[in-house]
Amino acid sequence: MSKNTERESVIRARSLTKKYKDFVAVDGIDFDVYRGESFGLLGPNGAGKSTTMKMITSVSQRTSGELTILGKEPNDQGPEIRAHLGVVPQKDMLDRELKVWENLVTYGRYFGLPRKWLKTKVEELLEFAQLTDKRNEKADDLSGGMQRRLAIARGLINEPEILLLDEPTTGLDPQARHILWDRLFRLKEQGVTLVLTTHYMDEAEQLCDRIIVMDKGKIMAEGSPAELIRDYSSREVVELRFGTDKNEGVAKQLEGKGDRIELLPDRILLYTDKGEALLTSILDSGLHPVTSLVRRSSLEDVFLRLTGRTLVD
């Protein structure tokens, strides 16, 4: 776990719980987000990530537990808290009837920012989002990557200290994702605290200093991506495919090889610190996988270890 006691906690949650009738969406979680860091909530759909984000935005009231954002109480200081936050919702939720620049201006006006001030701010943000030449297009006519960048620019209109991003790159192609990650890195360099949810492991590894892994409303683990991989997985993974109907039989023979074995419907995973050596010994023992692969351990493996399930199903 990170040693962050001397740092300023900007979001603090203790036994934070949200119930919708009988369904417990968030089940008594504890975490802190520190100023300037990039904090990830990682988990599959329905893990409680978005609900947690909504409670931080103070548009959803917690059922019980404690939650403070910048020392403020969301139950009665909602608008004040939101004045400090930038929100980039899942699916962008842009104002489709408006042009690109109008989206930015109107959103700034919702915060009560003066028009004159917004004029220069909008130019700055258009440039940051690489949308200057698209300023007069309808938001609806932009590509997916551009819409997401516009949503981020919109979230930055009030110069927030904390930027909340719900699934920032879901549905984007690899190139658009990389452009977006680059923009988020820049924000972090400027001292903006980032809080993001994702179900992409590579995204969490790329962007986050610290992660909580959530499943079914609970926190399964917490730490930096490297710490989590070290604590919950091995250095390397050998992936073997013998064919769907054979995997299970072969897995029994492989019992005892490596530190740990996981049998998935389509493949067998063997966890070890020396992948190549293990693979060679398996091939030498007369087994012939259809495909084999040695790779570094990822957060995907951490999640599998913690929950027994894969992340994207």
């Binding site: 608008p79 920012l113 110069e159 927030p160 200290e161």
Partner: peptide, 29 residues
């Protein structure tokens, strides 16, 4: 580029506006 002091001018304006009594229902805007 975008500069982030501890509390920026924009946040200060937005927060001041948000401090009106009853702002969680009606901010007067």
């Amino acid at each position: 580029m975008i500069t982030h002091a501890l509390i920026t001018q924009a946040v200060a304006i937005a927060e001041k506006r948000a401090k009106r009594p009853g702002a969680s229902v009606y901010s007067g805007r």
